[in-house]
């Protein structure tokens, strides 16, 4: 018991440390990659390859004035950014990074992930509302609508995988992909899940709650200092989480040829998806709000239902035969 507790603590600590580093590192990664695709250099002055910009940015965030608007709802204003960070981090609890490296191998892992990502919506709504600012409130309302809408298809898209494996346990799902990664049988599901993921993390092109060209900075207009930093880190962690989920559910998790350890395979795959997120940002313009909602309800919802129906039919046929 002693040993297993320290083992868990080690895993928890390792995951937490790794994630926070990844999130911080993404600051640099995103800028460098955006610059790469825009024929620039990006941050290249501080330290080797400009890596220390991460430090500089963090320091800057720590030293910025931690300002709370006088008319804001102060308690909620402070709590909101913490919610996003906590829920996203909790989402990682169920992610199997490699055989045995998982914080809690819950048998309802997938449901837990969905629950946590739904909770994330609160931080946007509360942050935007507590700011007592028109732009922030508009951003928050858009964010709420967007996140609630896209969660529906996200869940529906995942059901395909659940049908195929018959479990919500993430480790089992990964193990089930030894022969065939699920992105082949569940291609439509993967696409819908990925799109819903982008919307869920309100990343470009779906950064409608922020949309700086319309709403200043949307729901976090009034945030500064480390409170803004938490939103910031929360967003990067969200990207990582969605990438982890895509990899786990559709790309065989840690599975891969044996010449590399499983954790590395997992990391490589996750990084590929993070890059895809950044590529999206580099290449696509932001749709209008109504276009976003229309796209969700009129295209993705029917598609995901069709996907579920077809998958269910095939599974039924297979079990019949």
């Amino acid at each position: 018991m002693e040993e297993s507790t320290s083992h868990y603590l080690l895993i928890i600590g390792g995951v937490l440390f790794g994630l926070l580093n990844v999130a911080a590192g993404l600051i640099w990664v995103e800028r460098r990659m955006l610059a790469l695709w825009q024929d620039r250099y990006g941050p290249n002055r501080a330290g080797p390859f400009g890596l220390f910009i991460v430090l500089a940015d963090t320091l800057k965030l720590f030293f910025k004035e931690d300002w709370i608007p006088p008319l804001a709802d102060k308690v909620v204003f402070v709590i909101a950014p913490a919610i996003v960070l906590v829920t996203v981090l909790l989402g990682f609890v169920v992610v199997p990074f490699a055989p045995g490296i998982v914080v809690a191998d819950l048998n309802i892992g997938l449901l837990f992930f969905l629950a946590m990502s739904s909770m994330g919506a609160y931080s946007i709504i509360l942050g935007g509302w507590a700011s007592n600012n028109k732009y922030a409130l508009l951003g928050a309302m858009r964010g709420a609508a967007q996140m609630i809408s896209y969660e529906v298809f996200m869940g529906l898209a995942l059901m395909g995988v659940v049908l195929l494996t018959g479990t919500f346990n993430m480790t089992t799902i990964v193990e089930a992909q030894r022969d065939l990664w699920f992105f082949i049988p569940q291609f439509l599901g993967f696409v819908i899940f990925f799109i819903a993921g982008v919307a869920e993390t309100h990343r470009l092109p779906f950064d409608i709650p922020e949309s700086e060209s319309e709403l200043v900075a949307g729901f976090h207009s009034e945030y500064s200092g480390m409170k803004f930093g938490m939103f910031f880190i929360g967003e990067y962690l969200g990207i990582t989480l969605i990438s982890c989920m895509v990899v786990t559910l559709y790309f065989g998790g840690w599975l891969g040829p044996g010449f590399l350890p499983p954790l590395v395979w997992f990391a490589i795959k996750v990084f590929a998806f993070i890059s895809l997120f950044i590529l999206l940002r580099a290449s696509l313009p932001r749709p209008r709000y109504d276009q976003l909602m229309e796209y969700g309800w009129k295209i993705l919802l029917p598609l995901s239902l069709v996907n579920l129906l077809v998958t269910a039919a095939i599974v039924l046929l297979q079990t019949e035969s």
């Binding site: 790469l36 695709w37 825009q38 024929d39 620039r40 250099y41 590529l279 999206l280 580099a282 290449s283 696509l284």
Partner: peptide, 18 residues
């Protein structure tokens, strides 16, 4: 959309203007 993503990606191999 895919094409523009591809085109953007190809910029990774362009010369930098900076």
């Amino acid at each position: 959309i895919l094409r523009s993503m591809g085109l953007t990606f190809l910029h990774a191999f362009h010369k930098r203007d900076t």
